[in-house]
Design a protein around this nucleic acid. Structure first.
Length: 732
DNA sequence: GACCTGCTGCGGGGTG
């Protein structure tokens, strides 16, 4: 392995020598053979700053050093900022081999693009959207410029897996291989990712038709350790809306923990990011010290974000960024002293990604979680009594540390919105194309393999009826009037959309706005602005949700909406509550990772859990309300809620706990028994009663039947809901 | 009380 580098181009070896590296790292050595030979896909999984990019580029560049006709390497990134970073990092290596590097995205220099158009060669760094625009507008040039393409590499691959954009990317790569006549001799793909976990499933996400094998290269367990702590806070009954006062305790600790060093504080929402940054800046001012706390999120200007990124990277002044997921991906900010997570993380995959941002010079990663729970009153909801935000956080730490598990992509999604986009894109690219060609390219051999011929026919005929496409006398399909209009606008290229917001209105008063990507059913109970509401009417046209006040105790602080929590996380929560123990076993020892307040909050929750006998008691009657504790993921929970609403109950779910108003538990049990035995309710049927089903960008152009089908597959899981209901009913 | 990502071609005006 020591001499592995000698297989690289002589000039690449010289470059390595000039960097002062005494030897290549393990993943870099392991990547040399598979990338030089080019007859396999490669997945490189290693932490941030472990040299993944070089692991790909050193051998890949060696294979194109001699033959410079045409573009040799295509690098694809989810972010423009990463392309700019990569352009800088490749400069010296490319210079030594006299290779052209061209960043190609919406904001990159026109001059360098024109130069590539005249003389295509070297390395192109591009986004999926820019690649789409090249295929549609200039596929002839792409065909000749990429004729000699030897490698495709995808950075931050986990950011694409399971998403609409990821499906778009797979479709683009398949269309590119088709255009270049390389379906039989596929161009090897390399995926780079820092997210560890179930790597065996990833090759299928990289090439669904398996026309090339995939070599997995994984960083062996680094000696770097992880230090983590969960800190608890109790919020005394603050007036609702006094967000600043509520965050003061957390800010006192943040000030002590972070001042003087470089840290990232992940706050989960833009508004909380702003509040924390403002409170901390005020604290600096009143203590007469320079401010070193700054916000970073998607609504801030590019300039503000870049200034803060540069300040973090330079490490000249102590800096703490209070941020959302904008600082989660691999933008070049160097490593920080520690990472702080305020409020429960949304997924273990993102927690792992955030954690990897700390750990300087091979030292330990340091992660703290600051979790605030409400002080209990007589009115407190069961979500508060069970301290579910804290319990979820403890469960996620355990899964992160002990089991190396992370949330897999939902493989049941049908991606009809993206399929419609790709039909339009293919038609625009080819000018005219036959239906059977589209079907085999996109569905049979491409990434939309779940789509049946019947679905595809239904979609095409609807697209014909709505003038998105038109069939010529020859049988070929071309763009229709509506299709021309959509594809001619630059907004066509991206498959994801910025979600529209619905106004929440009570009487004549607007309470605020809510993105429509969450489940909203008429009759559903929701929490908004710290109060309980029942949805009366959804006006899809005007984008308004009319609500009325609902009675029934103090609403829970946590879990009214948000990202879907996975089954495995809820089961881990149930496990630690029923065992009254969250500590992590290592050999004979049990590792404590919670501070005193978090420990006592957990004990409170565990005691409530035991006293109410919640191991067995799945249906709880509280006055005229019934509460169900299914300990299941949100897809199953949402399915049970929708089933109950379809049977006339007023149901809602918070943090995975189902609450049914004005309902006797025996009636609820009977309703669930009939759901289990009558076998008539399908996901499509539940989806039909959803007022607004158009979630993804091109959903509005889908025929109603496919819209329902796609929504049903995305929101509901009848099979697993039945299994869960059977479990719940076992003792009843 | 979620969060994030991306995009064309052209015309007009200023600068060297």
């Amino acid at each position: 392995m020591i001499d592995e580098h000698e297989k690289l181009d002589f000039r690449v070896q010289q470059w390595i020598f000039k960097q002062g590296w005494d030897r290549l790292r393990e993943i870099q050595c392991l990547a040399i053979d598979p990338i030089l030979t080019g007859c396999t896909d490669v997945l490189i999984s290693a932490s941030t700053a472990a040299g993944k990019t070089e692991a790909f580029f050193l051998p890949a560049i060696s294979t194109i050093a001699e033959d410079k006709r045409g573009v040799g390497i295509l690098y694809i990134s989810p972010l423009k900022a990463l392309i700019n970073d990569q352009d800088r990092r490749l400069e010296s290596l490319a210079d030594i081999l006299d290779l052209q590097v061209t960043p190609w995205h919406g904001d990159s220099a026109q001059g360098r693009k024109s130069k590539l158009k005249r003389n295509p060669s070297g390395i192109v760094l591009i986004t999926p959207e820019s690649l789409e625009s090249l295929l549609i507008r200039d596929s002839g040039w792409v065909k000749s410029a990429f004729q000699n393409l030897k490698h495709i590499v995808i950075d931050e691959f986990h950011a694409f897996i399971g998403t609409e954009r990821g499906h778009h990317l797979l479709s683009l790569l398949h269309r590119l291989e088709h255009l270049l006549g390389r379906l039989k001799t596929p161009i090897p793909r390399t995926a780079l990712s820092a997210t560890l976990g179930e790597l065996e499933t990833v090759p299928l996400s990289l090439r669904p038709n398996k026309s090339l094998p995939c070599k997995i290269i994984k960083q062996t367990q680094s000696s770097a350790s992880l230090k983590m702590q969960v800190k608890g806070y109790i919020e005394t009954n603050t007036a609702v809306g006094d967000a600043v006062r509520a965050e003061q305790l957390v800010c006192n600790d943040l000030y002590e923990l972070c001042r003087g060093g470089n840290h990232l504080v992940f706050a989960n929402s833009r508004s909380r990011t702003e509040i924390l940054a403002a409170v901390l800046a005020d604290m600096c001012e009143s203590n007469a010290v320079p401010n070193e706390f700054f916000p970073h999120h998607g609504s801030l200007s590019k300039e503000m974000r870049e200034t803060l990124e540069a300040r973090l990277q330079q490490e000249k002044l102590p800096t703490t960024a209070i941020c959302t997921m904008t600082l989660e991906l691999g933008i070049d900010i160097g490593k920080v002293n520690s990472v702080v997570q305020v409020t429960a993380p949304h997924s273990i995959a993102s927690l792992r990604q955030r954690m990897g941002r700390s750990g300087r010079r091979g030292g330990a990663s340091i992660l703290r979680m600051l979790i605030t729970e409400n002080e209990l009153t007589k009115q407190s909801s069961i979500v508060d009594k069970l301290r579910l935000e804290l319990v979820q956080s403890l469960a996620m730490v355990r899964l992160l540390v002990a089991s190396k598990w992370y949330e897999p992509a939902d493989s049941l999604l049908l991606h009809f919105s993206t399929l419609l986009h790709q039909i339009l894109a293919l038609t625009a690219q080819w000018g005219g194309i036959r239906a059977d060609q589209i079907y085999s390219l996109l569905c049979k051999d491409g990434p939309f393999q779940h789509v049946t011929v019947a679905h595809f026919k239904c979609l095409l005929s609807h697209m014909g009826n709505t003038e998105l496409i038109t069939q010529l006398g020859s049988g070929e399909l071309v763009l229709g009037h509506a299709g021309e209009k959509i594809t001619n606008h630059y907004s066509f290229y991206a498959v994801f959309k910025t979600p529209e917001e619905f106004r929440i209105v009570s009487g004549s008063k607007t309470l605020g706005t809510l993105p429509v990507d969450s489940l909203i059913l008429e009759g559903q109970h929701i929490v908004f602005a710290g109060k309980r509401w029942v949805v009366e009417l959804v006006d899809v046209e005007k984008k308004v949700i009319f609500v009325n006040r609902a009675k029934g105790g103090q609403p829970p602080k946590f879990g009214g909406a948000g990202m879907a929590i996975h089954d495995v996380v809820r089961q881990e929560m149930f496990k630690i509550l029923s065992e009254s123990d969250y500590k992590i076993k290592v050999g004979e020892h049990r590792i404590e990772f919670a501070d005193e307040i978090a420990q006592s909050l957990f004990q409170e929750a565990a005691k409530f859990f035991q006293t109410a006998n919640l191991v067995k008691n799945n249906f709880i009657q509280q006055g005229n309300r019934t509460v169900i504790l299914p300990w299941a993921g949100d897809k199953v929970v949402n399915t049970i809620v929708a089933v109950l609403i379809s049977k006339g109950f007023a149901a809602g779910a918070f943090a995975g706990v189902i609450e049914i108003e004005k309902a006797d538990s025996q009636d609820v049990i009977n309703a669930l028994k009939s759901f289990q035995t009558d076998g008539t309710i399908s996901a499509n049927e539940l989806a039909e009663s959803i007022p607004e089903k158009a979630i993804d960008k091109f959903d509005e152009y889908l025929p109603e039947s496919l819209l329902i089908h796609g929504y049903g597959a995305k929101a509901f899981d009848i099979d697993n809901a039945k299994i869960k209901v059977e479990e719940l009913l076992e003792v009843y």
